[in-house]
Design a binder for these strands. Structure first.
Lengths: 157, 157
DNA sequence: ATAAATAGTTGTATTATACAACTATGACGG
DNA sequence: CCGTCATAGTTGTATAATACAACTATTTAT
């Protein structure tokens, strides 16, 4: 396989990943009226007990404005609570309300089915290796994108 | 690792994939004023020489209306040509214009850098196995999603 | 004390996407 | 041959995700 063939294979994988990501995003819509992005926030806060907006922004790797817009409906739905930080007047801490914890539980039950179904589609002896490889691929694309972005930015200067 | 741990690991992988997919979509914006989706269409038509709208719809796995809306700007930009099919009065064939072919070439040169950068981030002896594993993961998520959708639809009935 | 950096919000805009409803055409069965 | 069903594609409508820019308020560094 030549260098160019690898390129095409990687593009095909990325294209397929786009579809797969879209599938996952859809599946969440019929569960507790929470989008996939919103669930990622709820889940992140759930795991940590409490998170700052800037933590979410970094963890999801989206713009601060996007973080604001994903979190706001969760506050409005009273799933998430926001409080000014004690240490930093700019900072806001997020935590789950009781309702938020119940919602997380319900969504996790929903999404667990999907995740277990995914798990079962992968032969048992290949699971660990598959997870490793997907993680490696993720890291590779992320790093390559960052390098590309820096290159493009320095070209613009 | 328990069943639930696997679920969480799969969710983490999917979440990271969302970010990675977003990175890829962004990188295309500064290249020939064509979005990533539009490039996927151009690329698909380029590889085949000619494709029907329904082929694109199936290949990208998006709604027919989405196919319409991704293709239309390409026709407007004169990168893609649409012609009524000889065999089926409903069907439309797409092919690249000369300008479209040139644009494909330029974008491919752009995106090749990214793809090669991704390639280099993966140790040589692990490349093939990584591509295989990502493909397997893609197929697993896709299949699981489809089964989930069917289950949810039959529950609604 | 001042400048620079950070946290977060809001304005603005683009892109992607799906569901529903529609028209036009083709396939199929009676 | 005709009616029904299916398919191809478009358009209306709407939601969600997302980023850049500009802003305010607060913290940090000089």
């Amino acid at each position: 396989m030549t260098v160019n063939d690898d390129g095409r294979e990687i593009l095909t994988l990325i294209s397929d990943l786009c579809q797969v990501v879209r599938c996952c995003r859809q599946d969440s819509v019929f569960c507790a009226d929470v989008t996939f992005n919103q669930f990622l926030v709820i889940d992140a806060v759930y795991q940590q007990g409490s998170l700052k907006m800037s933590d979410i922004h970094r963890k999801l790797a989206v713009d601060k404005s996007t973080t604001s817009r994903v979190v706001h409906p969760l506050v409005r739905k009273k799933l998430v609570k926001r409080e000014k930080s004690n240490h930093d007047g700019r900072s806001i801490n997020l935590s789950l309300t009781e309702k938020g914890k119940e919602t997380h539980k319900r969504i996790w039950e929903c999404i667990s089915d999907l995740l277990q179904a995914v798990r079962k589609e992968i032969p048992e002896e290949e699971r660990h290796q598959t997870y490793q490889a997907v993680g490696l691929f993720n890291a590779a694309v992320r790093k390559a994108s960052q390098m590309q972005k820096l290159t493009s930015e320095s070209i613009r200067k």
